[in-house]
Write a protein that binds this DNA or RNA. Structure first.
Lengths: 218, 218
DNA sequence: CGTAACTGACCGCACGTTCAGTCAGCAATG
DNA sequence: CATTGCTGACTGAACGTGCGGTCAGTTACG
């Protein structure tokens, strides 16, 4: 066991366990055993279980920021950049699986405890990257959206929720999925002239849903 | 304590705890204490902690199916129905908060253990409802999408991921959020003639992302 | 030799589950 | 009406287990 790489190995195996079982169900003893180490070694390197989780988050977002910077530097227009970000988020599910799942399914974990502030900063910054792409697209006349902030959340939801259904050996490749999502969100589902009467449709939809009997608990 | 309603009360408080803390961090003793009951009572009614979680899922999906059936019965066209489903999913975050969060953030929990089969059935059925709306929309010439199954997952991601950011006291109402999401997905972000060259854009995006240095762990 | 990686026994604790038993309500019995 | 017996909600003490974390001590590299 080459020593200075123990940290990386611990991070890797820990993320895999959390991805497969969940944080609470991941025991440091199991992780250590898989690496031929003792539980104490992990605590020696990281101080606490929570700190290991935090480190996974930090390194994961480091990779995503590198990606986003590279995209910004090498693609000129908002449309290309947005498509690239959609692809990047989906590809991370395949190419950076353990850390992706860890950061997505244990998200709440990061909102409490000591990690909170630093993690929040990383997330806000990442959101900002997509919001900026959307704003620049609107300014350039390429995009239309009434609220870039919400549209960014739409994009994140669409991509990040993939952790609940994406399987590397599934029927579609990441490239195909990204293609469908990009097409959906860029050109829209409507064939016709669009949603001029969308306000009326929404109002009626709200009315119907609210009227549903037995819609609420209790 | 009116007796036969103990079950419902346990279900309610249990879901609130899971929504706020997570499943593993929810202790039956805490739930019981909040209701003025003993831990044993909960086990008496449900048999195990896992069974309580399963019951929350079943009742939650019962409400969502009631909603979906009502929408289908009272709205005639695919566009209206799709908008209504988007609104329903988002509104559940506000009006059925505890159970929504429980089912979304503890999703993996349902894929293992005894609950698996029944829960999977409910989820597949719900997905099918949206897939059908999309297929009917394509058949009627209202919608275009290359893959209704993936587009349905797009819709679910967009809506369900809201559990990570939606707050009832946030700046936007559920109705406003649903409006932005519906507009985004129906008319698309592109102002121009659409994405005729989207394949080329995607290919280039894939190329750039893949070239990113330090994109992968290790 | 110094330093840092690493060990392994140990601690305290919180949890889900078990189980023998209490008690109120209720229907049938005489 | 009084008695009996049953049912099912509910209790609370006890149990076993597995966990994260501590720490004094050992090893081995530079």
């Amino acid at each position: 066991m080459v020593r200075p790489s123990s940290r990386d190995a611990i991070l890797r195996v820990f993320a895999e366990h959390v991805a497969d079982r969940g944080y609470a169900e991941t025991s440091l003893a199991d992780v250590a055993a898989e690496l031929g180490l003792s539980k104490g070694t992990i605590l020696h390197h990281f101080g606490s279980k929570e700190a290991v989780l935090g480190e996974v988050h930090v390194t994961y977002f480091g990779r995503r920021f590198a990606e986003a910077d590279y995209v910004r530097a090498h693609l000129p227009d908002p449309t290309s950049r947005l498509v690239a970000m959609i692809y990047a988020l989906l590809a991370a599910h395949r190419d950076d699986r353990a850390a992706s799942l860890t950061c997505l399914r244990e998200l709440v974990r990061y909102f409490e405890g000591d990690l909170r502030e630093f993690v929040r900063t990383q997330r806000v910054r990442y959101t900002g990257i997509v919001v900026d792409i959307l704003r620049e697209g609107v300014a350039a006349g390429e995009f239309r959206t009434t609220d870039p902030g919400l549209t960014a959340l739409h994009v994140f939801g669409m991509c990040n929720y993939a952790w609940t259904w994406y399987r590397p050996d599934g029927p579609q490749s990441v490239e195909q999925i990204a293609g469908v999502f990009a097409r959906d969100i860029l050109q829209g589902l409507r064939t016709g002239p669009g949603a001029d009467d969308l306000d009326a449709v929404l109002t009626e939809a709200v009315r119907v849903v609210r009227r549903t009997p037995a819609r609420l608990p209790g």
